Computed example of a mutant assay.
Amino acid sequence: MNADPTNDPMRETLSRWQAAFDGHRPDDMAELFTSDAFFQGFGPEVTVGRDAVRAYYDAVPEYRRAHVGKVQGYRIGEEVAGGFADVVFRDPSGWEAPVHLSLVLQREGGDWRIRAYHVSRIATDH
């Protein structure tokens, strides 16, 4: 992560996201999203809203962790930002899922919230 994530909305948001994920805190995770956020995790369907986000992360095993790698971000004015990150989800059994994560962020009050979240699993068999 960057030395000063407050100047980089992607890094700042991903830092809070990773802490909530690794701590298995579905309520904290849901609060990172706008109330009408679009969310697509590993499932085939896009869901909408904090309740859907909370339910998704509540179902993730408590022992699963996320490692955030390379992050690329952009800003559009003072209210919109986003970007891409390489993330690897892991658990103690050796299970691993490398993904590309894309986020669209929106400033609400003084906080950046996730407006759109999309995960794309990286195929390693080609």
Rank of each mutant, 00 (worst) to 15 (best):
S15M: 08
T34P: 02
R16T: 07
A66W: 03
W112I: 00
G82S: 09
E79A: 11
A97T: 08
K70I: 04
T34Y: 07
D28M: 06
G83Q: 08
I76K: 06
E62L: 10
W112P: 00
V46T: 15
G110N: 12
A81M: 01
Q18K: 15
H100V: 15
H126N: 11
D91C: 07
G41Q: 08
I122M: 12
F89V: 04
P98H: 00
H118Y: 10
R90Y: 04
D4P: 00
G69P: 07
P44N: 14
L105H: 07
G49Y: 13
T47N: 09
V48Q: 15
D125I: 08
W95F: 11
A20P: 12
G82W: 01
T34S: 09
A3K: 11
G43M: 10
R11E: 14
A3F: 03
V87T: 04
R65K: 14
R113D: 00
D28T: 04
E62V: 14
V68W: 02
R113W: 00
Y56V: 06
D8T: 03
P92L: 00
G83D: 09
L103S: 02
T6S: 14
Y117F: 15
D4N: 11
G43F: 09
A30K: 04
R16M: 06
D36R: 12
N7D: 07
G41I: 12
R107G: 00
G82I: 02
N2D: 14
E45C: 05
R65H: 11
S93P: 09
G77A: 02
G69Y: 09
W112R: 01
R11L: 02
A52W: 07
S120K: 01
P26G: 05
V104A: 08
R54G: 04
R65T: 12
I122F: 06
T6W: 06
V99P: 02
S120D: 01
D36H: 12
I76M: 15
P92T: 00
A123F: 04
S15Y: 02
P9Q: 04
Y63R: 13
H24Y: 02
M10L: 11
I122S: 03
H67G: 08
N7C: 06
A55P: 10
A19F: 05
I76A: 14
F42E: 11
D27A: 13
R75H: 05
P44D: 15
D28I: 05
D8M: 01
D22S: 06
D8Q: 09
D51T: 13
G23W: 03
L101H: 05
F89D: 04
R25Y: 05
A52K: 10
L32Y: 03
G43Q: 12
H118P: 01
A85H: 00
R65G: 02
E62M: 06
D4K: 09
Q40K: 15
P98S: 01
A97W: 05
P98R: 01
G110V: 07
V80K: 03
A85V: 02
H118I: 14
L105C: 06
Y63S: 10
E108R: 12
V119Y: 02
T124Y: 01
V87R: 01
P9C: 03
R25A: 12
E78D: 13
Y56A: 12
I114S: 00
V71Q: 10
H100C: 13
P98V: 00
F21T: 03
R64S: 05
P92I: 01
